[in-house]
Write a protein that binds this DNA or RNA. Structure first.
Lengths: 215, 215, 215, 215
DNA sequence: GATTAATCGAGACGGTACGTCAAGTCTTGAT
DNA sequence: ATCAAGACTTGACGTACCGTCTCGATTAATC
């Protein structure tokens, strides 16, 4: 998977996609125009959320960004690579971690903000990638690392703080609650035609998460 | 969306995809060979589960079924249409409804069998379609009707029988439990690299569903 | 090459296309509808003179004649076969042989009538076939036998009568004159945009044919 | 009709096909690879003379030239267009104009070389196009301009030199002789199974053309 | 009069070529 | 070495046609 500002040939697969931003060694010729990165990613995002992954064409992205296709392929190896990087780029540091002293308040805050984030263009883009996951291990890894894990980790920390505060019983099924939470958000986002809104989040917290945690 | 054995132009969109099998009004020419329907659907299923949706080509399906491409396009409007119909066709009547007199036993039975069904080729195919849902309203409707609703309905009936038997408190959050169940299955199937197996199902029932129902 | 009213499998290649009309042995089932022959030939002729050989489709011919394609293929082996037979059918007995006692009058009469015949639909059809001649030996043979030879023979007889009457010197280059005549008619018909009309025929006779014959 | 190195949309129909070679206005992208033009034309010529016009497929031409089909369609609008251009390209400057001081020698020289040219692949290709002439006015114009007119013009000049030298009577039917000559060559080339060889040319000159010119 | 078999229109069938379009690579001149 | 532009190969797309086959419905000759 190509990495922005790194020679395509360099293999640094072990790194996280998130830390992809990196500079070319030094170079003798004209330096890369960093503004093209942003323009291309934005173009990709626009096209992706408008027509979906399958109907996204590299020519369309190039045209949207008034760029040449080579300028894209100099940065990313493939259409898939471009889309992955574009999406993960946006997820980074978009996950706030509330700490208001109450597990119920923290849960609500976090889920509401995460839900509204998923409702945006990133959510649409993510959905477009789901179909590719089984046949693209790299994509699958990146997807989990960028979309699933961070949300999971924040959530787990929230709950653990609640445990330490004594709000939650010690033997609460944390893993299960975390999984349920992620699953329900994604489910509504991608499969159901029901809204992923505040009402839903509140109901989820009150009827499922809190009861399970309180035992 | 084209319907087998009905002229493509005929609009009977209101019907369920499941009941799609239908005969042309009268027709004086050579009738459609019903065995081609099956052969094509099977070929589509094979190719789909082998290489995924994006890499599935109509030529490959045609070759697999020893059919001409026109024979495919006579029945379905597009690659997407073929795949949708092929999948929904398979989901029908694959959902058993256990009734062993105990909500816990019924839940376990049902989830185990549904999970193993999802793990099969149909699940793989379904995943390939998720990315298209936002841009294909018809597909979305068919998907929900075939994949989501039947499972939901069976589950709800299971729970309601439990309520009637007095196993479950009357004010249990049935809708939420139903949604959680579906969401968790799909989540594991499509997004996580963790297995959708018996252990997972049992844990889900014991740690989440039963507690929520018992209150 | 198939022959009307004869089983396709019967090989009677030695016969002239012209004598193609022939009856099936006896047969037990429903007899061929002779009126379909004519309808199909006429339909073929119409389509051929309208859109040319390449753009002629069997479906179009069938539709024009309100016939099924099988009804065509029962009579002719292929598109080419149909067209050949249709054309040669029309050439037969369309070549009058004038005998007014003067070579000049006979020549003029004959060429005028032949020219007007060529100007009709048969000429258009014939032109459509020229491109196939090099790759279809059977067609080439039929074409020569039906289009070229009869005209040549009549012409040669006309000239020989002139020789016998003493109008023409005995050592006139008859073969060459005959060839020139045919060549010039075809040339104007197929390649030139100049008309194949009475004026042209008269000029040909006066400026070329008669001088050559008189020496 | 498309023109090499000119955008297909540009309408410069008034120009001769022969002068078709032309450069795009300025163009900032990668310029057309001129070597592909030649490779494609040669491939077309090879396929054409091997299998004929009808059996010529664009895929075959592309494969022969190791080119993509898009590369063909970027230059020519259709199979017919490709073939026309390929042929007319070859005719240009293939017509020598002998001047040995004697009409008889000049005629013989010219006809022999033209006949041997026609006997080659270009002649075969030309034949394949005759059937399309009535339905393709552009083709017809190009065909006449490339195949018919140049030969006619050279011939007429030959004869006129003979007139000026006093070899030929002033009132010789030049037009008719010219037309006869072209007609007889084409006739043998395309319709007859008799050879278009030296013997035929000599006979034509001796028995028809010279007598008509000498009166 | 019932049977039989070949015909009829209609149109589905396998196959092949069509002309279009997208992915990813390469080549211009210019910066 | 980069940029925009766009030509390049490859390969799938969905359409159209050929020649074959299959359906129900005629239509004679045979039984």
């Amino acid at each position: 998977m190509a990495v922005v500002n790194a020679p395509t040939s360099s293999a640094r697969e072990e790194e996280t996609l998130a830390s992809a931003e990196q500079t070319r060694p030094a170079g003798r010729g004209r330096p890369r125009d960093a503004s093209r990165d942003a323009a291309l990613r934005q173009a990709a995002m626009e096209v992706l959320s408008q027509v979906g992954y399958r109907a996204l064409t590299m020519d369309a992205v190039a045209a949207h960004a008034r760029a040449g296709k080579a300028t894209i392929y100099r940065r990313w190896d493939s259409k898939l690579d471009l889309v992955i990087d574009t999406c993960t780029q946006l997820v980074q540091r978009n996950i706030p971690e509330p700490d208001r002293g109450s597990i119920e308040a923290d849960l609500g805050d976090f889920l509401r903000s995460f839900a509204s984030f998923l409702t945006g263009p990133v959510g649409k883009a993510a959905q477009a990638l789901v179909g590719e996951l089984p046949h693209e291990p790299e994509l699958a890894a990146a997807f989990r690392e960028s979309f699933l894990l961070p949300q999971r980790d924040v959530l787990r920390r929230l709950i653990e703080r609640g445990v330490q505060r004594g709000e939650i019983r010690a033997d609460a099924p944390v893993d299960t609650v975390v999984e349920i939470t992620g699953a329900c958000l994604i489910y509504r986002l991608m499969l159901t035609d029901e809204p992923l809104d505040t009402g839903f989040v509140d109901r989820l917290v009150n009827e499922a998460l809190m009861p399970l945690l309180h035992g």
